[in-house]
Amino acid sequence: MESVKMRYLFPLGLFIALFLDGSLSLQFSGSMFTQSVSIESRLILLWLVMAICYGNVRHIFVWAVIAGYFFDTYYTGILGLFIVMLPLIVYITRSIMRYFTSSFIVVLLIYLIDITILTVLFYWANALIGFTSVSITTFISKTLGPTLAYNLAIFVILFFPLEQFFKRFS
């Protein structure tokens, strides 16, 4: 059962994570978007994955769709990408977690797989609609690699606080 506190805290955290992604990208754009690297902050994914692994949250699919809608309309202006990809990630994570018990290493690996899927799909979709024309090798070295490294670092920092948070409130 989902606790009453979780019912309010989960969406709150979801939206804070969503908007922090943009704020961090703006404030640290000097080091996140340069000639050689281009890092996509994905705190929202960390929040969703931790909620699936340690929390007991109902309607997580619906929340993923809502968050995806806000991401699309507010950040990119192109509806139809995150609104589908975030629920997809939730589905994938859930399906994998059926065979594992949550631990630091397991969640870390799943999180890295999720980031890779999301970044590759996002690149593919943007290449499809003509928003980018970079080659796959440039994409891997400039975006995918640094994005994985950055999100890995954020994961290591935020894993224990978030684990405690979700265990306590659900």
């Binding site: 908007f19 943009g22 704020s23 990208s25 703006l26 978007f33 890092i39 996509e40």
Partner: peptide
Amino acid sequence: YVLTRTPSSWQNQIV
């Protein structure tokens, strides 16, 4: 003032 920046490699966009 600038509210935020799109966390995406493919769009250099600010709000």
